[in-house]
Amino acid sequence: MALNTPQITPTKKITVRAIGEELPRGDYQRCPQCDMLFSLPEINSHQSAYCPRCQAKIRDGRDWSLTRLAAMAFTMLLLMPFAWGEPLLHIWLLGIRIDANVMQGIWQMTKQGDAITGSMVFFCVIGAPLILVTSIAYLWFGNRLGMNLRPVLLMLERLKEWVMLDIYLVGIGVASIKVQDYAHIQAGVGLFSFVALVILTTVTLSHLNVEELWERFYPQRPATRRDEKLRVCLGCHFTGYPDQRGRCPRCHIPLRLRRRHSLQKCWAALLASIVLLLPANLLPISIIYLNGGRQEDTILSGIMSLASSNIAVAGIVFIASILVPFTKVIVMFTLLLSIHFKCQQGLRTRILLLRMVTWIGRWSMLDLFVISLTMSLINRDQILAFTMGPAAFYFGAAVILTILAVEWLDSRLLWDAHESGNARFDD
């Protein structure tokens, strides 16, 4: 018995066209964080690309023209004298008006014999932002004059995390709450300039795509075929072959399989920071003279006294001054041990922890910024005066060393310790 099946006739004509040209192939790229070699397709503007294995951002879609970056830099340069030299806060102490600005706080630190601690604050609040705007201006002028731009481009990517104007702005709020127990506070004209400078700096850093600047100024022929001998440069993120001198053909720094002496430098910085954190938390970090009496505060006791007036601000200072430094030390110690013992479990967790400490590390400088600003506000000789204690130097040095330890660690070593050939990683 035959089955009668109805015929289905399409209502619209289906047209099949042959592909007349070869589909576009992607360029081969190595991930600078996990060293995976993959094919990167062509990316349009405002599109980002991520590593298929570790999800690290390979290409950032946010990109401004150099002219727009230069305009932002010149605007920031105009704001800087007002943000640093004009009063941020006014207080009335014992019937006398006192003005506080950024430069005055750094000068008070240096004047009291601790120039190293003052230079830490100076670099993060004044030096690094000033280098940022002058570097962008150098790129703008240098591109037109045919100057060598490689050193500036190499420095810009590392400079971003040292620009800490946003953290200093939080420190202004913390210092205001600490001082309000002794005097009446009012915002100064410099505060508005400083807030504007923070906003412009944040926007500029978020749109400063150094890798795209490398592509514009020093374009290189990408690798179009897969080759395990391809290496990625950690300076400019170019994937290719080393030249005859073993250097990256684009930025001219040595092109090595792994960062040289990464573990040794990381261990040295980490152990030194552990040693410095002990006096930083045991010795007094601030000293207040009130009517001839002397009151010393460690980091913890200062947080407890701050909690009596504002528990939320005390929580912020606790996280930045105690929780973050010790968390960074514990995480980095764990990561280094996992590399030495070739741990194969929990790779995803370790990668996330490394990215976390990379982002939060700079916030530990908050305590030094609060001390710097408070020193310029309260300084009335023996009637009422505020000065920093010996722990300030140890704390600042420990924070900087932990930042350097994270920067010096080559994250690809975590993958080397893991089993080879993993296309995915999980716990």
Rank of each mutant, 00 (worst) to 15 (best):
residue 308 S to P: 09
residue 240 G to S: 14
residue 397 A to S: 13
residue 364 S to Y: 00
residue 219 P to N: 10
residue 298 T to V: 09
residue 311 I to P: 13
residue 197 L to N: 02
residue 395 F to V: 01
residue 237 H to R: 05
residue 121 V to P: 02
residue 306 L to V: 08
residue 282 L to G: 06
residue 198 V to G: 13
residue 127 G to S: 07
residue 128 A to E: 02
residue 55 Q to N: 09
residue 84 W to F: 13
residue 348 R to Q: 11
residue 313 V to N: 15
residue 268 A to W: 00
residue 386 F to H: 00
residue 374 T to F: 03
residue 233 C to G: 00
residue 231 R to K: 07
residue 240 G to F: 06
residue 374 T to P: 02
residue 175 A to C: 11
residue 73 A to Q: 03
residue 298 T to L: 07
residue 63 D to K: 15
residue 107 W to M: 13
residue 89 L to Y: 09
residue 307 A to N: 12
residue 105 G to Q: 15
residue 303 I to K: 00
residue 175 A to Y: 01
residue 149 L to W: 02
residue 121 V to E: 14
residue 352 L to Y: 12
residue 144 R to Y: 13
residue 208 L to W: 07
residue 147 M to G: 04
residue 22 E to M: 08
residue 277 L to C: 07
residue 65 S to M: 07
residue 97 R to P: 05
residue 310 N to P: 13
residue 19 I to R: 11
residue 291 N to W: 15
residue 117 T to G: 03
residue 227 D to G: 08
residue 407 E to K: 11
residue 127 G to M: 01
residue 367 D to E: 01
residue 320 A to V: 11
residue 320 A to N: 02
residue 14 I to Q: 11
residue 286 S to D: 00
residue 395 F to T: 01
residue 363 W to M: 05
residue 204 T to L: 08
residue 5 T to L: 11
residue 261 H to A: 04
residue 390 P to K: 07
residue 267 W to F: 07
residue 15 T to N: 11
residue 92 W to V: 05
residue 210 V to G: 11
residue 210 V to K: 13
residue 167 I to V: 11
residue 332 M to P: 06
residue 397 A to V: 03
residue 350 R to N: 12
residue 70 A to W: 15
residue 265 K to S: 03
residue 400 I to S: 05
residue 368 L to F: 03
residue 293 G to M: 12
residue 263 L to Y: 06
residue 22 E to S: 14
residue 39 S to D: 11
residue 319 I to T: 14
residue 163 V to D: 05
residue 302 G to E: 00
residue 219 P to T: 14
residue 162 W to T: 01
residue 321 S to Q: 04
residue 210 V to S: 12
residue 77 L to G: 13
residue 5 T to N: 12
residue 170 V to C: 14
residue 284 P to K: 04
residue 328 K to I: 00
residue 142 G to P: 01
residue 133 V to E: 01
residue 134 T to C: 12
residue 250 R to P: 01
residue 329 V to K: 07
residue 232 V to E: 07
residue 176 S to W: 06
residue 162 W to S: 01
residue 225 R to D: 10
residue 108 Q to L: 15
residue 30 R to F: 05
residue 267 W to R: 02
residue 389 G to N: 01
residue 53 R to F: 10
residue 229 K to M: 07
residue 270 L to K: 13
residue 326 F to G: 05
residue 184 H to E: 15
residue 13 K to T: 09
residue 225 R to F: 15
residue 178 K to M: 00
residue 420 S to T: 10
residue 257 L to R: 03
residue 343 C to K: 12
residue 329 V to A: 09
residue 200 L to H: 15
residue 288 I to D: 00
residue 101 N to F: 02
residue 33 Q to C: 12
residue 92 W to F: 07
residue 427 D to T: 15
residue 237 H to L: 07
residue 30 R to D: 01
residue 179 V to I: 03
residue 308 S to K: 14
residue 214 W to S: 15
residue 397 A to F: 08
residue 343 C to F: 14
residue 427 D to Y: 15
residue 133 V to Q: 03
residue 245 R to I: 05
residue 82 F to N: 10
residue 38 F to R: 03
residue 202 T to K: 15
residue 256 R to G: 05
residue 202 T to Y: 15
residue 159 L to R: 01
residue 373 L to P: 02
residue 234 L to W: 12
residue 244 Q to V: 05
residue 85 G to Q: 13
residue 301 S to V: 09
residue 201 T to V: 13
residue 270 L to Q: 07
residue 317 V to N: 00
residue 165 L to A: 13
residue 259 R to T: 08
residue 79 L to P: 04
residue 394 Y to L: 02
residue 122 F to E: 11
residue 15 T to D: 13
residue 279 P to V: 11
residue 167 I to D: 02
residue 247 R to Q: 13
residue 353 L to I: 15
residue 43 I to D: 09
residue 162 W to Y: 05
residue 367 D to K: 00
residue 351 I to M: 11
residue 88 L to V: 06
residue 41 P to Q: 11
residue 210 V to L: 15
residue 256 R to D: 06
residue 326 F to N: 11
residue 310 N to I: 06
residue 117 T to W: 01
residue 182 Y to F: 11
residue 201 T to L: 07
residue 389 G to R: 04
residue 258 R to T: 03
residue 241 Y to I: 06
residue 371 I to K: 00
residue 321 S to R: 01
residue 163 V to L: 15
residue 202 T to Q: 14
residue 268 A to G: 03
residue 256 R to C: 08
residue 416 D to P: 06
residue 154 L to N: 02
residue 424 R to Y: 13
residue 346 G to C: 11
residue 310 N to W: 04
residue 355 R to C: 09
residue 228 E to W: 07
residue 73 A to P: 05
residue 347 L to H: 12
residue 60 D to T: 11
residue 23 L to A: 12
residue 341 F to A: 09
residue 349 T to D: 05
residue 422 N to G: 15
residue 109 M to R: 02
residue 355 R to V: 12
residue 421 G to H: 14
residue 34 C to Q: 00
residue 330 I to C: 12
residue 126 I to E: 06
residue 259 R to E: 09
residue 6 P to S: 10
residue 291 N to E: 02
residue 247 R to W: 13
residue 425 F to C: 14
residue 406 V to G: 07
residue 56 A to T: 12
residue 243 D to K: 06
residue 358 T to W: 12
residue 22 E to Y: 12
residue 156 L to A: 06
residue 410 D to R: 00
residue 8 I to S: 14
residue 396 G to A: 05
residue 83 A to G: 14
residue 75 T to W: 01
residue 57 K to H: 04
residue 91 I to W: 02
residue 7 Q to K: 10
residue 225 R to Y: 09
residue 43 I to M: 12
residue 343 C to M: 14
residue 42 E to D: 09
residue 73 A to G: 11
residue 114 D to Q: 06
residue 250 R to D: 00
residue 329 V to Q: 12
residue 292 G to N: 06
residue 98 I to P: 02
residue 234 L to K: 08
residue 244 Q to M: 05
residue 357 V to K: 07
residue 292 G to K: 09
residue 13 K to M: 07
residue 203 V to W: 09
residue 367 D to T: 00
residue 140 W to M: 15
